[in-house]
Amino acid sequence: MTTAEQTAAVRSTGLLAGRRGLVLGVVNQRSIAWGIAERLAAEGAELGFTYRSRSAGLWLERATPRLGGDPWLGRCDVTDDAELAGLGTDFARSAAAGADSAPKIDFIVHAVAHGNREELAGGLAATSRKGFTECMESSVYSLIGVVQALRPHLSERASILTLSYLGSERVCHGYNVLGVAKAALESSARYLAAELGPHGTRVNVLSAGPMRTLATFGLPNFSASLAQRAERSPLGRSINTADVAGTALYLLSDLSSGVTGETVYVDAGYHIMGTWPGDPGDE
């Protein structure tokens, strides 16, 4: 069987065969969203990607052919209402040629977040109004705005997934205003799940443990922190892209057809721990 025949076979038999979805937030090969996209494509999904920066767009142009098919690419600044409004129409119509009806969108991966590095370094109490507003707009409202734009095009069994982090519910050193934003994001996902549920759309959150991505470069003591987290996790290791992508596939496929409004942790169990052997007061 040739490579083309193998690809065709997967696209007809995979868990996401015949499904079409949009991925937001890929910057480069280290992006969690890219690892998720690779797994979704391997299960037969037809993908579209948005980008904001020219560098991300150029990287996607080079990288997406590896996924097979003909992935759609489109620029979208999630802080621009006009670009958000056109997003759904542009992506939905990209496969309309020869279709008897308007194509539907079966899933969305929202992996968009931004916090100004200088603001993060200053601590939450020193966060400026502008820095707070920009972080909330990029990291939280972007999910709501994307849902508004794409809702008319969602299929009857659509699934929406957004990414979070433990800093949403615990104080994680250096996370600061991003932790506040992630808390708001998770709350927004629950409200959206309740609102969209009657229409068959599910909304869930994947809270991933720390990984080596572009966002972590330059963070103080990141390597030491990563090693400590691994030692203190019940599984005794760090997570990897495959861990996250597998859970994303579950949440975006019919395997999780009865799951919505949930925050699912992929962190080797770290979030369940309260104390550790050897801590002061441990018995």
Rank of each mutant, 00 (worst) to 15 (best):
V23H: 02
V23G: 08
L24I: 06
V27M: 13
Q29K: 14
W34A: 04
G35V: 00
R39K: 14
A45N: 05
S55Y: 12
L58C: 07
L58Y: 12
P65C: 09
P71L: 09
W72K: 11
V78M: 11
V78F: 07
D80N: 13
L87Y: 06
L87C: 04
A95S: 14
A99T: 04
A99K: 13
K104M: 13
F107E: 03
I108C: 05
H114S: 06
G122C: 04
G123T: 05
A125K: 11
A125D: 15
E134T: 09
C135H: 07
E137C: 07
Y141S: 11
L143F: 03
G145K: 01
G145T: 07
R151D: 14
R157K: 14
A158E: 00
I160Q: 08
I160T: 00
S164P: 03
L166W: 09
G167P: 08
C172N: 13
A181R: 05
R190N: 10
A208V: 05
R212M: 13
L214T: 11
A215W: 10
A215F: 11
P220T: 10
F222H: 12
A230W: 03
T241V: 14
L255H: 15
L255F: 14
G261F: 10
T263H: 09
V264R: 09
G281A: 01
D282W: 15
E283V: 07
